[in-house]
Nucleic acid binder design. Structure first.
Lengths: 239, 239
DNA sequence: AGAATAGTGTCTATAAGACAGTATGCC
DNA sequence: GGCATACTGTCTTATAGACACTATTCT
């Protein structure tokens, strides 16, 4: 039995101002490869799985190293393992996807963070990536878009409190289409996932909207018997 | 980098006569472990991934070795990789699930097939399994049941032609609840997944029902940018 | 004819979408 | 007061479910 390399990669999503329009746009951080193969090309953050480390914990490391924050949601996406997907030998990659809240990203300035080789890209304007990462990003986008329509994962991209208008804009940014404000409001309230805080957002240019928060007793997504992944398990137990 | 063992396991589903009632019941083949750890316990069929073999092809081997037939559907389920899931060392298992048509199973009698250590179990009456396989089976059942409600994967369990009554019984066996024949018929026809052959099933005790076949131009399930897995790829290309 | 399943019709409840209309705060 | 957004009301359409009813074949 020859050794097969086992790696983890993570597709990280956050909402960031679009470079052109400044409106919130679904974005993904990528790292530039500094060595062969594919030196100079952009790729998904990731690395080898440590022998004593769970898969989700390995994905958690990836997140910290690139965004510097704890993700609000983490889920296994798919495992890619075609024999020829890496020119240097057999590598099987367990890929995760994560949601990060924008206010937590901040600007990393410490020496450990190499901002030259880490850059955020708008999700629908990704360059041609190394390995089979184009396919992976495409699939992760499909999964996010499918899931945002029938779960409450959008909260993984938002802060503590928010207006329904902001929540709607998150859905619009993810789905890349406009939604009817009236109908969206009704569905959001009927779902029970959001709860009004009783406060209003002042300082806007118009009528102050109500602030909401997510019902913390409800899960972000129903993944069946498997719960959500915990990238930073307290001890060492995990699937 | 210490080596991490990479394995593949497969949850195989087929409809077989329930030992007690003789009615079609969702069933899973298991293999009895002949060595430690967990010697004597039932477990999912599987094995090590060959260095030159794709993950789906490895799952395909599993299928042939236990059921002896080509599966009608194969999909990656999840990758389990907790550091302590095997007492003998670190093993990461990429798990697949598959559907097999009952008429293809047949009874294997050749010497290569050890029927003593391979047995079919009714899905809702599975013994306590080796490793973390209890969880895996539970999750695969959830996935199958979720998917049968919004896709046409039930055809993976049926033969070439069938009556709508038979199709409904497949759904009922999977979901473990009765469905209204009238409403089921309407939905099946409206979905466009089934097409009447123009023939009828004679020889029954009552009014002969129409025979249908699946619309081969439609996919069994929408897995997004990733298509269905092919366990027996012609050359060597795959994800 | 009767039994049993095949197949159709129809009513109700629910939800999504379109869109008109009212409310309220800031300029 | 005007404007932009917040928020409500209501109509239409599609679909799921319940269930009554008709059709056809075999015994």
């Amino acid at each position: 039995m020859r050794a097969i390399g086992l790696a983890v990669s993570t597709v990280i999503f956050a909402l960031r101002p679009h470079p052109a329009t400044q409106r919130p746009a679904l974005s993904i951080p990528l790292v530039r490869r500094t060595r062969e193969p594919y030196a100079g090309r952009w790729a998904l953050p990731g690395g080898w799985v440590d022998p004593d480390e769970s898969l989700a914990a390995s994905a958690g490391r990836t997140l910290v190293e690139t965004t510097g924050v704890r993700p609000s949601y983490l889920e296994q996406l798919y495992t890619f393992g075609a024999p020829d997907r890496s020119p240097t030998g057999r590598v099987v990659s367990v890929v995760y996807w994560a949601l990060v809240r924008p206010e937590q990203i901040g600007e990393r300035t410490d020496a450990a963070f190499d901002s030259v080789n880490v850059r955020w890209f708008v999700a629908d304007d990704i360059p041609h990536l190394a390995f089979d990462h184009d396919r992976i990003v495409e699939y992760s986008l499909w999964r996010l878009r499918t899931k945002v329509e029938y779960t409450a994962i959008a909260q993984g991209l938002l802060g503590e409190t928010f207006t329904l208008s902001e929540l709607r804009q998150v859905h619009e940014a993810v789905l890349d289409r406009e939604l009817d404000p009236a109908n969206f409001r009704r569905q959001a309230e009927a779902s029970g996932a959001v709860v009004p805080t009783g406060e209003r957002l002042t300082g806007g240019r118009h009528r102050p909207p109500r602030l909401y928060r997510f019902d913390t007793s409800a899960a972000l997504a129903d993944n069946g018997p498997l719960g959500a992944d915990d990238p930073f398990p307290p001890s060492g137990e995990e699937q």
